[in-house]
Structure formats: structure tokens, C-alpha cells
């Protein structure tokens, strides 16, 4: 998870800073009109967080549905594959047992481990990590805005 968060931080920081460069003139106009730099920074941060909230919500629920469908398909395929390995007494061997290994894990436990579920704790963790990562990634763009000189942009 830390690798994913770290990579997201770097990529998002660079992307947001890149987008801000396109809006440099607009920000320069606001600053020349006397807009407070803190207000500009808050506006940019809010824009990023709102977009992130929408994106996280969409990915959470669509991802849950998609993952559920894929895991179900994988289970069906697995079960179908094991149907062909019946012994003389009608016992269905697992793949490992068929290869000669003995295991205490039964197929019901395997099926349970494939099951995708989304409880409240997972969802909250998802949002917390997502919003936290996005918020941290606004630090570099904030530094960029703080250094903007409206005179150099506009005159």
C-alpha cells in the first residue's frame, strides 16, 4: 500500500503542478486584483479534493462490482476445472491433492477467500488514504503558487 501511496503522491503532485502552469495567467490576474494568495491556494486545494472525492466514490463502488464479478468468474472456472478430477470413490480432489500434496484447507475456505466484500471500515480507510494522499500532493502546487509573481506574469 505504501508503494501505491508514494507513487500516487509523486504523480499527482506533478500533474497538479502541470495543470496550474496552464492557469498561471488566470492566477496572476486574481493576484493583481488583490486576491489573497491563501484564498487562491485554498481554492486550488478544494478543487483537487472535490474531484478526488468524486473519483474515489466512483472507483469504490464500480471497483467493488467489477471485483465481485471477476472473483465469481474465477471461482466458477476453478470449480469447473476440478470437476474433471474425480477419483474412483467420487471424491473431488483439489489441484494440490491431485498433484499428490495433502492439505487441510478445504474448497469452502478457498471460496471464502475469493469473496469480495466492502464493509464500512474498508470504505472509510479507502477515503482516508485517498483524501490524505491527494491533500499531501497539493503541497508542491501550493509552493508553486506561493512563488508566483503577478508582475512577471502580467507585465
Amino acid at each position: 500500500m505504501f508503494v501505491v501511496v508514494g507513487a500516487s503522491l509523486i504523480i499527482l503532485s506533478l500533474l497538479i503542478t502541470l495543470f496550474l502552469r496552464d492557469r498561471k495567467h488566470e492566477i496572476g490576474v486574481y493576484l493583481s486584483l488583490g486576491e489573497r494568495k491563501t484564498k487562491v491556494v485554498v481554492q486550488i486545494a478544494l478543487e483537487v479534493v472535490v474531484v478526488a472525492l468524486i473519483a474515489i466514490t466512483l472507483s469504490l463502488f464500480s471497483g467493488n462490482i467489477l471485483a465481485g464479478s471477476i472473483s465469481e468468474k474465477m471461482l466458477v472456472d476453478q470449480v469447473a476445472a476440478e470437476q474433471g478430477k474425480k477419483s474412483n470413490n467420487g471424491y473431488v480432489y483439489t489441484e494440490l491433492e491431485y498433484m499428490g500434496y495433502r492439505t487441510e484447507i478445504d474448497s469452502n475456505e478457498v471460496a471464502r477467500s475469493y469473496a469480495v466484500s466492502l464493509d464500512l471500515i474498508t470504505m472509510l480507510l479507502f477515503y482516508a488514504v485517498g483524501i490524505g494522499t491527494v491533500s499531501l500532493s497539493t503541497l508542491m502546487p501550493i509552493a508553486y503558487i506561493s512563488r508566483l509573481n503577478p508582475k512577471k506574469i502580467l507585465m
Binding site: 493576484l31 493583481s32 486584483l33 488583490g34 486576491e35 494568495k37
Partner: peptide
């Protein structure tokens, strides 16, 4: 304050 001066 420069910002306030430009603003008002």
C-alpha cells in the same frame, strides 16, 4: 499591505 492595497 500590498494585497489589501491592490484589492481596495
Amino acid at each position: 499591505g500590498f494585497e489589501e492595497y491592490r484589492r481596495n
